[in-house]
Amino acid sequence: MKIVLAMVTALAVTAGAAAADETVSFRVGYSAGGSYDINARLVAEFLPAYLAEGTGIIVENAPGAGSLTLAKTMMFEDATDGTSIATISSALALSPIFDPESTDFDPQKVHYIASLSNAASYCVAHKSSGIETLQQLLDSSDAKVGATGRGSTTYTFPSAIKTALNGQFEIVVGFKGGNEIDLAMERGDVDVRCGIGLNTLVRGDALERLNVIAEIALEPKGEMDGIDFALDFAPDAETRAALELVFASGSVHHPVIAGPNTTEEAVDALRAAFSALATDPDFVAANEDRRAFINITDGATVEAIIDGFLSAPDDVKELARTLVQ
């Protein structure tokens, strides 16, 4: 009798916990402490004001496979009411181009709610290397560029630059993260790192130790003066178009997605909340204070940008694939 009573209580506890679920789960495809995590936590602090009354947000880290694990999970997400969102690698939006055989994640099936950054990425060289411009990097056969894995922008950006612009430098692959590359630059083990964002560059006294040698974006962002714009070095229109595809993920950086089953109403509500957040004065102030550099682009625009890249001519896609191999 007492077991039955306790089991009923147990089920009631679980059912109660499930019924009382008025929270949005905001999962981050990377470990705590990284820029994806910091941005998600900042958003989660201010977004509830624009969701249905009483709705809270919990941020959870679900790292794995460069966020592909989480992206795949989101493809099968049950929640239809917008209570489950995630931030994943922007590069996954272009997986049909760069990894056509993979069917783990379809960027055209999930709903893009917003992207949290469209800032440029940069290539930086340690001052002790003597490299001050992109051309110097391209001409240097001694220079070493540090990279994490072959799927990350720390590899794809310099690889595309090397192949497309006939660079002589070497790429050293296998670092565990950007921080490790930074320390390797300090030691002189490598000279250059690509795919670094402004939020990292303003950390500590990095700009006193590093030369910013190239801006990687689809158009100059003007965040820093006098920096070589990588696309300007493209020898012809086709190569430029292929490089644009490689660099494209930066224009929809830190995307926030909801699963394919999410209803139109829920998607609209979430998109409206993010759009309202973009102009929230408290959020804007906190964003500035914490040097997060969040710049929200609405989900409809993000989806249009991604569709544009995915419909690029086949020969350009093929060339882009070759550049990053």
Partner: peptide, 28 residues
Amino acid sequence: PTLAFGIPGSAPMAILLGAFAIHGITAG
């Protein structure tokens, strides 16, 4: 490394560095 370069050596240090930024502290 967190204090010397502003380069976090581990995930907890990365979080701590984030806290530095919140409070306007520049590592180095």
